[in-house]
Amino acid sequence: MQAINARNLTKTYRTRVKSEGLGASFRALAKPEYKEVEAVKQVDLSVEQGEILAFIGPNGAGKSTFIKMLCGILHPSGGAVSVLGLSPVNERRKLALRIGTVFGQKSQLWLHLPPLDSFTLLAAIYEIGEAERKRRVDELSELFALGDFLRTPVRKLSLGQRVRCEVAASLLHEPELLFLDEPTIGLDVVVKQAIRELILRRNRERGTTVFLTSHDPADIEHLCQRAVVIDHGALVLDSPVDKLKSDNPGTSMENIIAAIFQQETGRPLEAASDDTPVEEAPV
């Protein structure tokens, strides 16, 4: 059964264009100019339940926009999408009960309070009863070794401890599908490996589908069964990770991805900069 099914999924933003300088600012005030930017261009993508998929691409490629459409945060400009058999736009609340998210740039924990307090709030939001909340927190606490810092204000936790709590928080309602947007960003090698093992364990034991974006090739190599590369809103690669490895023996995953990216786009991956002004505030 498919966890995600996107067909011709498109997201277009209207963004304001302004030349440099104060004069241009006044001209733009009197006569604003706009241009349309296609952040995601007619993407077709299917993900099977239980699969761990890496969704990668340079900054501004359209990864976050695509994920936000899958989660129901953004409304697509065109195409169709179904996540766990639900429409993210029309059935956002039903879908939210069945998915978990970790956005590396956005915390769902309260900075001044211990993670345990945030878990209590999440339990209320996800309609988890008191006894069940305690059972799940105990289970996650053991799995993620949170015991020592569950009662410490989040502001006093290290980044690694905080990310472990973030991932645990996203699993509290036992989601079938987990969106991880750069969950290991800024972490040291040891903590990264620990997070990867926890995600893998959850996938093996519960069959949780994982949709992962990351700039770290080791995440892809150690976690994912399939890699999808996006650039300028369009897919440029969709391949099993094992096939990438067997086709390029002795080459690191970082170099494999970089070589394929250059072959498909004519640009080196590291030089593929964020020249697409996506996700601007409405004008």
């Binding site: 926009t65 945060i73 953004l74 740039q105 915390s107 924990l109 900075l111 996700e279």
Partner: peptide, 11 residues
Amino acid sequence: YESGNVIVTRL
């Protein structure tokens, strides 16, 4: 709503 990618913590 068009979202954004600013780094955010909850106070």
